[in-house]
Simulated scan of single mutants.
Amino acid sequence: MKIRLVNSGVFTPIDDIKTTLTAPTDGFYWIDADVEDLAELQPLFSLHDLAVEDSQSEEEQRPKIEIYENHYFIVVNSIRFDDEEIFLRALNIFLGRHFIITVTKQKIHELRAVKPLLWEDEANSPDRFLYILIDLVTDNYFTVGDRIEARIDQLEEDILMHTKKSHLNEIIGLRSEILWLKKVLGPQKEVINTLNKKDLRLIDDQLQKYFSDIYENAVKISETFETYRDLMSNLREAYQSSIANRANEIMRVFTAMTTIFMPLTVITGIYGMNFDNMPELHWKYSYFAVLGLMIFLGSGMYYLFRKKEWL
């Protein structure tokens, strides 16, 4: 657990947790905690039992905002895209009048990235911290969206150039993750909308208006992932068409080969008959003549098929 006094964006480490119980003269306290630290923090800050229970739960948390007497409990999902797989990590936030507590189970990039922004913005209140943090979390969805779009483009190019069976598994897997992500974006969008429109006493009225900009970005993200879902459907159709075209190409080659060998088979069948009165059988050069005729017919038909682009 790390405790910092944030005053005009400047961080001052705090060693004694009890110091944070009293509001500072200037600034606010940021407590960056792990789930295990909630046992100590709950009685000190009168954190609601249900909020603490949700933070400690092993189950996936739905984005939400809950309003209690002396604090708000907010859950948003941070996003990562590693090794072609999407990860969502819950960011639990307890917002008070003079403090903000962030609780995570895994490391979240936005908590590290927020520090220089707080200094640049000269943040001096916990609600300002909340705004900057949620803005960072939302913007990161655009970054992940760009990587997903690049992956879709690369997958489309690979399918058009050389279709593989593994491409279908990639399409199904990526489409499932996009659908799952879009399902999660709905509640998160509503949380941001609540911060934008609802009368919340722990958030300054002037600052509350800025959440409308984050909400617009959340709507754009939701629409973008809706587009990605449609692109994945198109990609699956492209895969199936490519497989069908490839099968047609193979069948066309086999058909052409069969057609070429048909007259050759007729010739060999004729001269394979066991009749005595076949003058060509007793001719000195009959073998070479028939063989030459077969080569001429086969080559001629092959040339004809190539000219008509059937092969």
Score class of each variant (00 low, 15 high):
L200D: 09
F94R: 04
T163Y: 00
R236P: 00
I93K: 06
L91F: 07
N248A: 06
N196A: 14
L21A: 09
L181T: 00
Y141P: 01
T259I: 13
P187A: 00
N70V: 08
F129N: 06
E216Q: 13
E53V: 05
A33Y: 10
D276R: 06
Y239R: 01
A218C: 07
K115A: 13
D276G: 15
D158S: 15
T102D: 06
I100A: 13
I221N: 03
E60T: 11
A256F: 00
F305S: 07
N92S: 11
V253L: 07
P126H: 13
M294F: 11
I260S: 04
V76D: 02
K197R: 15
E53H: 12
R151K: 12
T20I: 05
K182L: 01
Q56I: 09
I171F: 03
E58C: 07
Q61E: 08
N70L: 07
M262L: 14
D127V: 13
K284Y: 14
I152G: 02
H48N: 14
P63H: 00
V103F: 11
I108P: 07
I65F: 00
W30I: 10
R175W: 00
F81R: 01
Y239M: 03
N140L: 07
I260W: 03
N217Q: 14
L185E: 00
I31V: 15
P126G: 09
N277C: 06
S242V: 01
L5P: 12
R97L: 10
H71I: 08
T102N: 09
V75M: 03
F261W: 14
E53C: 08
Y215C: 02
K18M: 12
N7P: 05
H162D: 05
H109C: 08
E280S: 09
N124S: 15
H71W: 14
L264H: 09
L95T: 04
Q106S: 14
E223G: 05
L38K: 12
K164D: 06
E84F: 02
M232Y: 00
W283D: 14
Y131M: 09
M273A: 13
T143K: 13
H98N: 12
S222P: 04
K182C: 02
N274Y: 09
S212G: 10
A218P: 05
I192E: 00
K164Q: 14
L293P: 08
I171Q: 01
F45H: 04
Y285K: 10
D204G: 07
L179N: 03
T224C: 04
I14T: 05
E85H: 08
V137F: 01
Y72G: 08
D32K: 13
L202Y: 15
L231G: 02
A256H: 01
S8D: 07
N92C: 11
V103K: 10
E280G: 13
S241P: 05
Y302F: 15
K165Y: 03
K183M: 08
F296S: 15
A256W: 01
G27Y: 13
L185D: 00
G272I: 06
F73E: 03
F305Y: 10
G96M: 05
M1G: 06
M273K: 11
D276L: 10
T227L: 11
E190H: 02
A247I: 01
L291E: 10
I3M: 11
S78M: 08
F142N: 10
